[in-house]
C-alpha cells in the first residue's frame, strides 16, 4: 500500500508545487469570474428580471443577485472540474515523454497501481481545488446574503465535487492516451479551456442552444454535475423566492428560472432528474475507469 500512497503523493506534489500549473488549470474559472464582473452578471440579472413578468414586488433585488451569484459559482466549479483534472493528468504525458514512466516501471509498483494512482491523484487534486472554490464561494455568498442552504445540501454539494472530479478524471485518463507529447496535450488544453465554459453553460445557459448542442454538451459528466450543483446550491434560495411570491404565479417564475439556467440536464428531448444525472455520471465514470484499467495495462507492457 505504501507504494501506491507514495506514487499518489508524488503526483499530488507535482501539481500542487507547480504554481503556474495551478494558475493555468484555473484560468477558465478566473476568466469566467472576470467576465461576470464585467458583464455576465448583468446578462444573468436581466434574464432573471425578464422572467419576473409583474412579480417584481414579490422578489427582492438581493435575492435575484444571490441567484445570479450562485449561478456564477456553479459555472466556476463546473469549468474547474474540467480544467483541473486535465492539468493534473498531463503528468502522464510528461512522464511518458521524459522517460519517467520507465523509472516507475522498473520498480515493484504494480502496473494497475500506477494507473489507479494517476487517477486517484487527479481526482483528489480536483476535489481539493473545487472544494476550496466551493468553500470560498459559499463564505463570500454568505456575507452577501442568505443562500438558504441546509447541511444536507452542503454535504451533497461536496459529494458532487467528488463525483464530478472522479468522472472528469476518468474521461481524461482515456483522452491522455492519444497524446504522445506534452506540446500536443497543451494545445488540446487550449481548446478545452475555451470550450469548457460553453459546454457547462457558464457563459450562456445551455437552454439557449439548440437541442443537438444541448445533447452534445450533456454527454459530458461535468455538464450534469454543473446542473446538479446548481440544483443543490440554489434550490434553497429558489424555494425562498417561490415562498415570497406566495403562489401567485403557481411556481411559474422558479420553474422558468430552473429551465433557463439548466437546473436539470436536458438532452435529446429528455429532462434528467437529479438521480438520473447522478446515475449517468456514475455509469459514465465506471465505464471510463474499466476502459482505462484495460488499455493502460496494455500500454505499460511494451
Amino acid at each position: 500500500m505504501m507504494d501506491f500512497i507514495g506514487f499518489t503523493k508524488r503526483n499530488l506534489i507535482i501539481y500542487f508545487k507547480d504554481v503556474l500549473a495551478i494558475f493555468f488549470s484555473l484560468l477558465t474559472s478566473i476568466i469566467i469570474f472576470i467576465l461576470y464582473l464585467l458583464f455576465l452578471k448583468g446578462t444573468f440579472v436581466d434574464a432573471l428580471n425578464g422572467t419576473l413578468n409583474g412579480l417584481e414586488n414579490f422578489v427582492s433585488g438581493a435575492d435575484i443577485d444571490m441567484l445570479a451569484n450562485g449561478i456564477l459559482l456553479t459555472g466556476i466549479l463546473g469549468t474547474a472540474m474540467i480544467t483541473v483534472p486535465y492539468t493534473c493528468l498531463q503528468t502522464i504525458v510528461k512522464d511518458r515523454e521524459s522517460g519517467v514512466d520507465s523509472d516507475i516501471c522498473a520498480t515493484p509498483l504494480k502496473r494497475w497501481k500506477i494507473v489507479l494512482s494517476y487517477f486517484t491523484a487527479s481526482t483528489l487534486s480536483s476535489f481539493i481545488m473545487t472544494s476550496l472554490i466551493l468553500t470560498v464561494g459559499l463564505v463570500v455568498l454568505n456575507f452577501m446574503g442568505d443562500l438558504h442552504l441546509s447541511v444536507q445540501s452542503l454535504i451533497a454539494a461536496y459529494g458532487m465535487m467528488f463525483l464530478g472530479s472522479a468522472s472528469s478524471t476518468a474521461l481524461f485518463m482515456l483522452v491522455m492516451l492519444f497524446f504522445k507529447s506534452s506540446s500536443t496535450s497543451t494545445a488540446f488544453f487550449g481548446i478545452l479551456s475555451a470550450a469548457a465554459g460553453f459546454v457547462i453553460g457558464a457563459y450562456i445557459p445551455l437552454s439557449q442552444f439548440s437541442e443537438g448542442v444541448q445533447g452534445f454538451c450533456n454527454l459530458f459528466p461535468a455538464s450534469h454535475i454543473t446542473s446538479l450543483i446548481r440544483n443543490i446550491l440554489l434550490s434553497g434560495i429558489a424555494n425562498n423566492i417561490d415562498s415570497s411570491i406566495g403562489g401567485v404565479d403557481n411556481g411559474a417564475f422558479i420553474s422558468a428560472v430552473k429551465d433557463t439556467f439548466s437546473f436539470n440536464a436536458h438532452a435529446f428531448g429528455t429532462d434528467f432528474s437529479g438521480m438520473n444525472s447522478v446515475l449517468y455520471v456514475g455509469i459514465f465514470a465506471l465505464i471510463c475507469i474499466a476502459a482505462m484499467m484495460v488499455v493502460y495495462s496494455k500500454t505499460y507492457k511494451k
Binding site: D3, G6, R10, D18, G99, V100, I104, T107, P108
Partner: peptide, 21 residues
C-alpha cells in the same frame, strides 16, 4: 528521469516509497 520541479529530498523519498520503503 527524476521530477524536475521536486527537490532532491522529495524525489528520493517518493522513489523510495515505490519500493515500499
Amino acid at each position: 528521469v527524476l521530477d524536475k520541479k521536486l527537490s532532491v529530498k522529495d524525489n528520493l523519498l517518493t522513489r523510495g516509497s515505490y519500493y515500499g520503503l
